[in-house]
Design a protein around this nucleic acid. Structure first.
Lengths: 261, 261
DNA sequence: ACTGAATTTGCAATTTTTTGCTGCATTTTG
DNA sequence: CAAAATGCAGCAAAAAATTGCAAATTCAGT
């Protein structure tokens, strides 16, 4: 992020570029502060104000006192309990874009980080995505280039995902290039763990069905343990957190041979 | 971890964000204390008071001494204002309650009327419900007594339902007591018709899988025709509209032997 | 390359909005 | 009934928005 903003300070942006940048910021963060934008874009607050006003008139964003918020944000019930963690999850979701290739078959499990990943999935990449998560599927329907296949079965009220024998049976018939695995708890020694036995079975099946396992994990879930084990940490090929890849906090996983992004 | 919590405190919230936050709090716990909100949002109680006053004037919450409570549970929950002819659909959904019995196995297709039916499904009735509709499934998850089973498959971007061979295959394995069929167009002579061939296949499968077919139909969809035929009007056992059962408009269906509610 | 119009951008002065505070009225609670 | 808690109105400081204007930039047409 720092790299990018430095770059931005030196080169003045065209109006259209600014607009795109602002729209992206709003999309990713759901809200932006006017002052932040002025600093990031290295232009006066007045210009930002004018940009926001224009984008508001276009209906692209909603301008409010002190900044702007996403218009689509209110529509669907997207309960974002912890605002701070949401920022991190957006960062993680965007890092994960680096792994995507045209035409991949992808498995995505549940969880709010994966939901964020689904929301921010690049609009221009074609992919076939299997998921047992209701909210993830809902998000993916917003992406015209994504072929979404819901893995059916008995739905869990709390987790809002399909669970049970039929679901696992269906997953076993899939061959995916990538699997984005939601993280319960992650520990270098005890691996990936969960508190729900059925979720463990589901995730095991997803791992078996995929060539490459990616774990999107906010750092606060690292170094904690739950009762049931899904897999060893080694079974995860790529670990993506909101931290800098060089952060010593992640060293134990690096030593296990995981790719860190 | 300290970093994160400090970070949260330092970021000022926009007024609209606070409003969203408060609405969500009210929705989740039905009541909120003014002092709690002031602490959580890290602003003065006066500001919270003003926020609550504003939201009260908007009718979103009810302000009471020392905090606020939820007005009625269904105000902020869904985009129900956007559902066309919502009033009528609510009436229809409630009439349909008369058909429900404890422990039934039920099939529900897509459509906004069925969505409304799912939303208003009696909280106290136990049932097992199969559906290929994403929004319907989401609504059903709010009902603890309902076992929801999603019929998976390739998802249609527009209709937000699962379609295709796998979906139909799964439906064919179900034996349901009741099937609530969303209506494309309904005509006494030409029967139930749709403009999407795949949806037709899906509905045919649902009809085969159910003992009794119920059609929830707003009256304006009656006496119009589309290209593909799902079934004869006679195949429908019970027709529920927003009209009075004795309305002469419904006579043609009565003569065909349909039960009218 | 030069001109001149149109657009864009930044600046300063003014207005509006937001927010916290003080003092006082009102309600709740023991 | 009295003490504590809550609500309310007005006020002032800070932040943000608006307005008018001038400098800078872009760009078409010579």
């Amino acid at each position: 992020m720092d790299k990018i903003s430095d770059y931005r300070v030196l080169i003045p942006m065209l109006k259209e570029e600014r607009h795109d940048f602002i729209l992206n910021e709003v999309k990713v963060r759901n809200r932006v502060l006017l002052t932040d934008l002025a600093v990031k874009l290295n232009i006066s607050e007045d210009t930002v104000r004018r940009d926001l006003k224009y984008l508001d008139e276009q209906g692209k964003i909603k301008k409010v006192h002190g900044g702007a918020i996403s218009t689509s944000y209110h529509l669907y019930t997207y309960k974002e309990q912890e605002i701070y963690a949401h920022e991190n999850k957006s960062v993680i979701a965007q890092k994960a874009h680096a792994l995507l290739r045209e035409g991949q078959v992808i498995l995505i499990s549940g969880g709010t980080t994966n939901l964020e990943f689904a929301r921010l999935f690049p609009k221009n990449i074609k992919a076939t995505i299997f998921t047992p998560s209701l909210p993830v599927a809902m998000q993916l329907l917003e992406h015209p280039n994504v072929q979404t296949i819901f893995i059916g079965g008995r739905l869990s009220h709390e987790a809002q995902i399909a669970l049970g024998g039929e679901t696992i049976q269906t997953i076993s018939q899939v061959r995916a290039d990538l699997c984005f695995l939601g993280t319960g708890q992650l520990d270098p020694v005890h691996g990936l763990t969960e508190f729900d036995w059925e979720v463990v079975q589901l995730k095991k099946a997803m791992i078996l069905a995929s060539k490459k396992i990616v774990s999107l994990t906010i750092s606060e879930k690292i170094n904690s343990i739950q009762v049931y084990k899904v897999c060893d940490a080694r079974a995860i090929h790529t670990l993506i957190t909101e931290l800098n890849p060089g952060d010593p906090f992640l060293d134990p996983f690096k030593q296990l041979g995981l790719e860190i992004l």
